[in-house]
Amino acid sequence: MNYTLNFAPVWQNLDHLLAGLALGLQLALVGIAIGCLIGLATAFALLSPVRALRWLAAGYVTLVRNTPILVLILLLYFALPSIGIRLDKLSSFLITLALYAGAYLAEVFRGGLMAIPKGQREAGLAIGLREWQIKAYVIIPVMLRNVLPSLSNSFISLFKDTSLAAAIAVPELTYQARKINLESYRVIETWLVTSALYILTCYVIALLLRQLERRLSLTR
């Protein structure tokens, strides 16, 4: 093996890598935030007494969960223009990520909602709260606290999925890494550092979320 390690080109371009990482985090945050809203609505739809809603929601979840995310990304970015919807790379990826997240989070939220004793809703009804108020002030806050561990896992997973934005040339971390790799031929160094960045970030996110879990835990 005639390969001498030379990390210099990687360190010189560290700012690009970090910018890519920052972009990836931003995409993850916004994508998951929107995904949470979609997922919450879908979870309620999955539990709705209206059959059409249940079917629609179940269809959405099954479709998205069984389709490779890369296909979804390409579909939204390349195929939508043929029916008149033209989006820029960033928006397209963001929407794809949100829809993808929504389908996975819907299952998480649905489990969380089903675990809430129905007495909670009845207690809310008994003091005269409206249905939407009960959802807003009781059901959703309790449910979110209960599903926080699963939510954390989903967040980390979705952050890693932002690496796929590179497939449509969104300049996040993986894209930057590939660029450096192709330009400098420092193959081992580039990918080692990139992996390390991802692993470190995931670790920090996990740590922060565990702190959050502890602070919000209902079993104090």
Binding site: G119, E122, A123, A126, I127, V138, P141, L218
Partner: peptide, 13 residues
């Protein structure tokens, strides 16, 4: 009206 339940049903959060 006000109701007290067998399972109390206090809001845990």
């Amino acid at each position: 009206t006000g109701m007290a339940f067998q399972q109390f049903n206090l809001f845990p959060h």
